[in-house]
């Protein structure tokens, strides 16, 4: 689904990403982890073509990302940014409907659009405040709305930057389980997650970034080791297997 080779990204004079290489297969759930400033958001934005790489190549679904038109690209990938700030008084359903732009022909909106919008709003539990102004929502509710918008876009690849950062524990589980269910239907999910326990629980693979380089990419067993957490995050942590959910649990000491 994603092929990144020899990727270098600079912003201003600063090199943010150095020689990134990795491959994501369709249907995978990838957790993007790393300390603050390690380049997670930049990597996600470069894949979404919001930042132009200085060097290197990114292929989406086997085709160079530069070969896509904007609309084609939006039919292949959707993106949930970290910042959900908005100043204008749209209602919630209007915002979610904007996710359908790439599927619409000129001046036309169809029934299938309405169906998927409703489906995704119900799935994210945002349908109940569909008529409310986006400005009257809490940060967490707004985050849910933008996730609904990205899902309504119905692209095979979904990129999310900290999608659960503003959500309470119920919705953290709800959204991550929803994304997991989507991967079993064949969608590919790449998401930045700060919470290592959530990352290890839901991701099939973890991509650990450090200082703009890929430190490790693999199953959580290989990535989350006490030694590596010490080297990247500079923390002393104990790692145990949580039998209840069959996932690694990181406890910083």
């Amino acid at each position: 689904m994603i092929d990144v080779s020899n990727l270098h990204v600079t912003l201003g004079d600063k090199q943010i990403l150095k020689n990134i290489n990795f491959h994501v297969a369709p249907g995978e759930f990838i957790g993007l982890i790393g300390p603050n400033g390690s380049g997670k958001t930049t990597l996600l934005k470069t894949i979404a073509q919001l930042i132009t790489a200085k060097e290197g190549k990114i292929k989406i679904a086997g085709k160079d990302q530069k070969a896509y038109s904007h609309k084609e690209m939006a039919r292949h990938l959707s993106y949930v940014p970290q910042d959900t700030h908005i100043d204008f008084n749209f209602n919630v359903k209007e915002v979610v409907s904007m996710g359908r732009h790439a599927h619409r022909e000129f001046l036309q909106s169809n029934k299938a659009d309405e169906e998927i919008i409703k489906e995704m709003m119900l799935a994210t539990n945002t349908w109940r405040f569909r008529d409310d102004s986006i400005l009257n929502l809490s940060g967490g509710q707004r985050q849910l709305v933008f996730i609904a918008k990205a899902l309504a876009q119905d692209a095979p690849l979904i990129l999310l930057d900290e999608p659960v950062s503003a959500l309470d524990i119920y919705y953290q589980m709800h959204i991550l389980k929803l994304l997991q269910a989507l991967t079993s239907q064949g969608k590919t999910v790449v998401t930045v997650l700060h919470d290592l326990n959530l990352a290890s629980r839901f991701s099939e693979k973890l991509l650990l970034l450090q200082n703009g380089e890929v430190r490790t990419f693999g199953h959580s067993n290989e990535v989350l080791t006490e030694k590596r957490l010490k080297e990247t995050y500079h923390i002393d942590a104990k790692i145990r297997r949580d039998e209840l959910i069959d996932a690694l649990n990181v406890t910083p000491l």
Partner: peptide
């Protein structure tokens, strides 16, 4: 009209929703 609506959500939203 709809392009401008999406530009209101911000450059990142507009671009990844298919607006040049």
């Amino acid at each position: 009209g709809s392009q401008l609506n999406m530009m209101l959500l911000g450059e990142d939203h507009a671009k990844t929703s298919g607006i040049n």
